[in-house]
């Protein structure tokens, strides 16, 4: 048995250990704010792990979503709830303990059963020999996209990705439906929260210099997804994060003047509409749904290039939806649904 030194197992084990520590700490801490921050650190560690596993697209996404957006959403919610958990809990429900015992038994069984799994990182394992070589070998000739992850994501499995965009769209809708019904009584209570003027010069200066760079970078990530890690999802999250940063450094009103509520809603639906619309256009041209080859005639290029352009177009759709949804989630969660005052 040999293993490749390119996978530094000492490094892996160190990160995994730190992840376990972070996970336990996040659950054990009494303060919810610190828990949220530790969860962010946990996400960041998992990014390192994934980068090391050569899953750069995934690590990129997790860095943008898990370490950044999720933490902000946690913090936005934490300002509306009791920030310290109560410790004195004498009674425990019996059902929970039974569940716990079952869970531990399952854990031991599953850990024991890892013996049966193919060796980690084995190039001859079934997962690496059945479908994946075909993707790697054919993707470039069939879609003209060197980033195989993008090709699989937005073409071979584009039906999944469309519904991924629909999932985030649904999340924005659900949060809106749940939160934006503020009773009068509650609105009075919301007025008591501290107002933030958002006049800190250092923060504003930093925001002013970072945000344009962020947005350009987001566009780069989106449009360069064919050739480098990234794509619609990552680009969209970064673009959305720029608006969130604006809201954090100034205040929510300021960012909502730049990106209005209606525009957010239109973008949420519009991105998915672009994606599904392209699919439907292919269907109308006599191909199957999302068969981008159908667009070859319209674009005046070969089938393969049409697929490449199709990928770009749907990535833009994903980007728009994700950007708007991230902003919408932040706006709703950080303001408790009334869109008056943010984090």
């Amino acid at each position: 048995m040999t293993w490749d030194t390119s996978l530094l197992w000492q490094f892996d084990i160190l990160i995994l250990l730190m992840m376990v520590i972070c996970a336990v700490t996040a659950l054990a801490l009494e303060g919810l704010l610190s828990s949220a921050i530790v969860t962010g650190a946990y996400s960041f560690l998992i990014c390192l792990m994934w980068t090391h596993m050569r899953a750069v697209d995934v690590a990129f996404t997790e860095a943008a979503v898990g370490a950044a957006i999720s933490t902000v959403l946690f913090l936005g919610t934490a300002q509306y709830v009791n920030r310290w958990i109560k410790k004195d809990r004498p009674r425990e429900q019996g059902i929970k303990q039974i569940t716990l015992v079952i869970a531990v038994i399952c854990a031991v069984m599953m850990l024991n059963a890892t013996r049966d799994l193919p060796e980690w990182a084995d190039p001859a394992s079934p997962a690496s020999t059945h479908l994946s070589p075909r993707y790697i070998e054919q993707a470039y000739f069939e879609t003209a996209t060197p980033n195989v992850v993008t090709a699989v994501l937005a073409d071979y499995r584009s039906y999944d990705t469309m519904f991924e965009a629909v999932v985030v769209f649904a999340a924005a809708l659900v949060v809106m439906v749940v939160l934006r019904r503020t009773s009068h009584k509650h609105r009075m209570a919301l007025h008591l929260r501290p107002k933030r003027a958002g006049r800190d010069t250092v923060l504003r200066g930093a925001a002013q210099s970072i945000i344009p760079v962020m947005q350009i970078f987001a566009l780069y990530v989106l449009f360069h997804g064919h050739y480098s890690p990234g794509g619609g999802f990552q680009g969209g999250v970064i673009f959305g994060a720029s608006f969130i940063l604006l809201a954090l450094c100034y205040n929510l009103k300021f960012s909502m003047n730049r990106f209005r509520e209606h525009a957010v809603l239109w973008c949420c639906a519009g991105g998915v509409l672009l994606y599904a619309g392209i699919g439907a256009a292919c269907l109308a041209m006599g191909w199957n749904f999302l068969g981008y080859g159908a667009l070859a005639g319209v674009l005046g290029v070969s089938d393969v290039m049409a697929r490449s352009h199709g990928i770009l177009a749907v990535e833009i759709g994903v980007g728009i939806t994700v950007m708007a949804v991230m902003v919408s989630l932040y706006n709703d969660l950080a303001s408790g649904g009334d869109l008056e005052e943010g984090l």
Partner: peptide, 9 residues
């Protein structure tokens, strides 16, 4: 979906 032959698509 997308005119890909399963199991690729």
């Amino acid at each position: 979906m997308g005119d890909w032959i399963p199991p690729m698509g």
